[in-house]
Nucleic acid binder design. Structure first.
Lengths: 326, 326
DNA sequence: TTGTATGCGTTATCAT
DNA sequence: ATGATAACGCATACAA
């Protein structure tokens, strides 16, 4: 690979001038020299070495993103949105899949730190992710879900309590006599928000309520739902806390020969495109994925660990489709 | 961030010794010095700077992966498998989403080259991806799909001609009187293989055949299928060349009130987990995702652009589920 | 306006 | 066994 020195030699200038040309500064270059440099660079197919650049600048222009499962369409859509937002600011996105394993999450963070990412975007299933390493490395962190009080990281998220309330309220409006909550697998701020919103919605009504939990995967949700829908306390309608779980419920209903929504109704959270094309289409709380992604990148670029932490709540929208309304 | 020099100073040695300790070589270090270095490193929370290491070594221990759409479960599963395989060899995976746009693909390749990735794994929808830049940078490339003759890259793929043949044959066995092929959107080696296998399977039989194409997304496939299934030449069974398209067909059938498989049967390719949990479950040609991912990493790690190109064909398995068989 | 020289943090080649 | 030092390729402060 040709270096700036090679280009300089061919252009008959010094490597400094090559640098000035490729960075449009910080110092002016004569039109003539600029022209010679560009021609030489084209001829040699010179590309600046981002590694050397980063080592010198102390910035890699890269952001690490950790997702629990890239095969989950919601996280995939989010990752894509973040990548686009990062690219728009000339940053590279590194994606790490934690498989919802805390130790993998920790290892990805370590790996990203060694690779000198400038900042971190975290989607954890854990309540209190292990951010010690990130803090020691003075990396700004943005979580895309609610965090425990006192965590030293920013967060961008919708209000799941409110989302759960709205979704459950929607099911109540349909007149279903019993409503179930299919929550996430671990006790966390997020799952507590879902439970609280669900409870607030059903409070005072006469509906029978029940609650279960499953891992965030179709397979796990399907298994839990099949058992649930077969049991004596099978609910007439289910609020699932993610689209993946919602699809698991759809599959469970199908497996048991139950019609949706005639026998079981479902509404979930995320608003993935996959949910819009499931059979039947899934009612869902649609998250403002792009807005969240853009904001996360905006917060992290040109920011340091010393900047104040921000905690922002985004709006959402309930999209009613066939799964919850006849 | 502390550097090797800081550690050396605290340990009372030179930075060279620090390097030897952290790399287990290339020269021996006294047990005493090693102990002092490790203690100092722990105290300072020293982590080697992968950037400087890569600059010095001329290797970044990173692999670039370009996928057409990370929100497509097949590509997501593949990306996850590659990430795991890469991590097992202590390599980092960079993922770029081309959105099936050739220009984006090209830009990602450029960006990866500037970041000095050691090699490239490419999933392109294009027949002849633009690998000029990769060749100039002397990057080894592995495509995870068939390539045109003469392309200077390795490829790992199943035999889509055979897959199409097996899948179509399976539909014929069910006795469906007409069979349609829902192929990919562009003329490429892959789409030609699908068409050829389909043609070979129906050759000599009395079934009515038809062919359409759509982009590789549920939305596009659903739209094309709705129109198709409404038309006079609506097929009794469809072979779709990807699971995403297969799910689009399921959605189309649902939209038109057609039962699957009683009114329309579907079989597709990829064998994603999402397909196993669709309604109804999707019959599919299952790709050996993990084996392909592992092999791709194996080929690329410790290899250069000068090594011979390999073209390997992997086995697949037809998994019959409800969508194609009553 | 431009050339020279130093530093970024590591590895590796000299030395000793 | 280990200390000093020159790369790796770029950016930039310092000279000119």
């Amino acid at each position: 690979m040709p270096t700036a020195r090679d280009v300089a030699k061919l252009a008959g200038t010094s490597n400094a001038v090559v640098s000035y040309v490729f960075n449009n500064g910080p110092r002016a270059v004569s039109a003539d020299a600029r022209e010679r440099v560009l021609r030489a660079a084209r001829e040699l197919d010179y590309k600046p070495n981002a590694l050397a650049r980063a080592l010198s600048a102390g910035k890699t222009r890269s952001i690490g993103l950790i997702v629990p499962d890239i095969a989950n369409p919601f996280f995939a859509e989010l990752a894509r949105a973040v990548e686009v937002a990062a690219a728009a600011r000339d940053h590279l996105l590194l994606i790490g899949d934690s498989a919802t394993v805390a130790e993998h999450e920790r290892r990805h963070i370590e790996s990203f730190i060694e690779r000198q990412v400038d900042s971190l975007i975290l989607i954890s299933l854990l309540d209190e992710p292990d951010l010690k390493a990130a803090h020691l490395a003075r990396l700004p962190v943005v979580a895309l879900h609610p965090l425990s009080e006192g965590q030293l990281a920013s967060s961008l998220t919708i209000d799941y309590e409110h989302a759960a309330y709205i979704a459950t309220h929607h099911l109540l409006e349909q007149g279903y006599a019993s409503i179930g909550l299919l929550n996430g697998p671990v006790d966390s701020v997020g799952t507590r928000q879902h439970a609280a919103g669900f409870a607030r919605a059903v409070a005072g009504s006469a509906v029978r309520v029940a609650e279960r939990s499953s891992a965030i995967s179709r397979a796990a949700a399907a298994e839990a739902s099949i058992e649930w829908l077969r049991s004596p306390d099978a609910p007439r309608a289910i609020y699932a806390t993610t689209d993946e779980q919602g699809q698991g419920v759809l599959f469970a209903a199908y497996s048991l020969g139950l019609r949706v929504p005639e026998d079981v109704a479902v509404v979930s959270v995320d608003g993935t495109e996959a949910g819009a094309y499931s059979v039947p289409p899934l009612s869902s709380i649609s998250q403002p994925t792009q807005a969240i992604a853009r904001r996360a990148v905006e917060i992290l670029v040109d920011r340091t660990a010393d900047d104040p932490i921000v905690n922002e709540i985004f709006n959402f929208e309930l999209i009613v489709r066939k799964s919850s309304k006849a």
